[in-house]
Each structure stands twice: as structure tokens, then as C-alpha cells.
Amino acid sequence: MMLAMAAWEPVPVLLGVVIGGLAALHGLGAWLRAGQRPLESGPFSGGLPPEEHAFSRFHVRWYPVTMIFLAFDMEMLFMYPWVRVVRERGTSAVVEMFLFLGILLAAVAYARREGALRWA
């Protein structure tokens, strides 16, 4: 257990170094531009102002894909521990995993037939 924790000790140090580096970069930038304030600007779409704010409920046409993706993504989580026990558990582990994946792939085939994977 002690050993397992020791492996993570460099991570916060690394995070600290990166955040420190980013802060130093911002400081250096502020020094270089003599403390000039950020520019307040309108959004760019070619030079003319838009008629509304861009913040909106953005219509994405790929949302059916997100559903299939979630199903696979959850499945992926099981695959990580699975790789360590494949030999131990033998053929049954492989059969079960790929049977499950096969079922998910059937969903992909169905989604493809329904045109969910192409939206333009």
C-alpha cells in the first residue's frame, strides 16, 4: 500500500511545476507588455458584428452517436482490469468479453443502418 501511494507522489509535484510555470508565463507576459490591460473586443466572424450572442444551446446533429459512445465507454472500463486476468481466467474470459463487444457492435451496425453515423 505504501508502495502504491509512493508512485503517485511525483504527480502533485509535477502539477505544481506546471501551474507554477503557467503563472510565471503570465507574469512574464504582463511584464513584457508593461501591465497593459486585456483588449475588450467583439467576436470575429469576418469583421462585422453579429446580431446575437453566440452562447446558445448549440444544435449538434451527432447526439445519437454520443449514446453509443457512452455504452462502449462504460464497457471499456471493464476491459482495463480484464487485461490482467485473461490468462488466469482462461478461455471463458475472452469469450465473455468478445461476446459482450459483439452485442455492442450489433448496436453500431444498427445505428449505421439508421444513418446515425453520418450527418452531412
Binding site: 466572424s45 469576418g46 469583421g47 462585422l48 458584428p49 453579429p50 446580431e51 446575437e52 450572442h53 453566440a54 452562447f55 446558445s56 444551446r57 448549440f58 444544435h59
Partner: peptide, 23 residues
């Protein structure tokens, strides 16, 4: 500036719509 209004999309869904001059 106002926020986005809504309008029907091609599938008949009412969705936010932005008006934007390009170029």
C-alpha cells in the same frame, strides 16, 4: 446584444438560431 432566438430546424425541431454576417 440579444441572446439567440429560436426557429424550426429542417427536422421541425425548435432550436436556438444565431444570425451572423460572414466576411
Amino acid at each position: 446584444l440579444p441572446m439567440a432566438g429560436r426557429a424550426d430546424d429542417r427536422d421541425g425541431l425548435r432550436l436556438d438560431r444565431l444570425h451572423l454576417p460572414l466576411g
